[in-house]
Design a protein around this nucleic acid. Structure first.
Lengths: 254, 254
DNA sequence: GTGCTCGATTTGTATAGACAACTAGTCATC
DNA sequence: GATGACTAGTTGTCTATACAAATCGAGCAC
């Protein structure tokens, strides 16, 4: 760095702030953080340095950093959570629950790229409650599909689907080729289906769920139990969904 | 006030805050100020108690009050001005400058009640510059109309209009009956006119202007010089407008 | 009457300390 | 494996002091 204070060199992001130059320290910090966010130094959803870290980095008081963070929060650039930290804001997906709940449609409607990963396909005998919901006899085989749904590459929903095996025996093969459940059902002779009911609760995720959804084990997931039926009214799918904390909100329009 | 802390009596607005009850002091202060504004204790545009006064009133630190004020400012309820004080926010009028600039239309378009007061009507000989703009000979008489325009009863613009007396000799009588210049011009055979040009500057108001506009003498007013012409292209009015500080912003759409 | 200066007033910034409230991770226990 | 306790880490609130920056009004000079 030259001795010329008006030289062309740009200070690095962590460089000293300009004191007594007419721009409040907190504004300069806010500007730098905004720039770092815009340039991708901090990714959406990513955790920012702590207030103490930033205070040390910029050699200012923690309250000065807080003032800068409040500014960014007010502008929707960051999300501050007591006890957890500060995070780059990311848009929360509005997950509409209605007669035609379709993951890919919902995601595309919000200008994001839907994705899916089939985690596991297995077969098991239906226990009483599930059999009842599916309208089959207890003990009959069901295809269980565990699928992770992503938006823009980020996990959003962890779904467990149950299909009567007698009717949807081909699902495992179909899903190997294309992870779209809607497409697979079409191939099985169900060109359309609709949501009959959705029940919503919340709970803490299991360790495995937390890992798959890329979230903390201490933050609750929204849990849905849904029943989907075909045009004839037959139940085709009983599914459980677990929605990543802070990344989706369920929307029910009356 | 009864000894029962759960009694039905509501604390007066200036009553003590509830400490350690799970609601931050600054939130309680913000809520009370919001309530006072909503109930009309503080009128739009009115000055709020100073930070020091509020700190004393609520028995808190000045920074706690600042936090509350920042909250209200962020929600657009108040306007804080360094060195001047804090004021209840009032909507700033968008004063559109275009071919058909009409005060009453502009005000009504923003759901306010236009009003006007003729301050003075006089006659004088046109000096060189004015004569030139009006397209008359120097020394010819012009009718000078000083009008205060109000929105919802609050002064917004102080206008000085100059009309050629030979053509608009009836203006004084007409304006006595109805303070609408547009209506008076119609009665004088000018059913329509449009804005040819507007020049904008800013300066500090004179003491009289400040008083009429109900503002500080230290705050600049926006000043416009406008030329209005009739359908035949003849200049009908050369006017000066002085817009109250903080209450109007000129809007020019390209 | 006007403009300038100065003191008082008011908000804005920065630091500092202390403690509350919340969260996450670890570890022990069942 | 699940649960609860505990600890460390992180943000939130409140107070306090000091000084900067902006504004206002009074007084005075011209």
């Amino acid at each position: 760095m030259t001795d010329d204070p008006n030289g062309p060199e740009a200070l690095p992001a962590g460089g000293l702030l300009a004191r007594g130059q007419g721009v409040a320290l907190w504004r300069q910090i806010a500007q730098r953080l905004e720039r770092d966010i815009a340039s991708g130094v901090h990714a959406p959803g990513g955790r920012l340095p702590t207030e103490a870290e930033l205070a040390g980095q910029y050699n200012v008081n923690r309250h000065t950093v807080r003032r800068a963070m409040e500014e960014l929060e007010g502008r929707g650039l960051v999300r501050i959570e007591q006890g957890r930290g500060s995070f780059v804001a990311e848009d929360v997906v509005d997950y509409s629950l209605g007669p035609r709940t379709r993951f890919s449609e919902i995601i595309r409607r919000q200008n994001r790229e839907p994705g899916g990963r089939i985690l596991r396909v297995s077969e098991m005998a239906a226990e009483t409650g599930l059999a009842e919901q599916l309208g089959i006899r207890r003990g009959r085989p069901v295809i269980v599909v565990e699928r992770l749904s992503l938006a823009d590459g980020r996990p959003l929903v962890l779904g467990t689907h149950h299909f009567p095996a007698t009717r949807f025996g081909r699902l495992p093969d179909l899903l190997r080729a294309d992870p779209s459940i809607t497409a697979a059902l079409t191939a099985c002779g169900v060109p359309d289906y609709r949501r009959r009911v959705t029940r919503i609760t919340a709970r803490l995720p299991t360790p495995e769920e937390a890992e798959l959804l890329q979230q903390s084990r201490n933050r609750p997931v929204l849990v849905t139990e849904a029943v989907n039926i075909d045009p004839a009214g037959e139940v085709v799918d009983v599914s459980t969904g677990r929605y990543a904390a802070g990344r989706a909100q369920l929307v029910v329009e009356s």
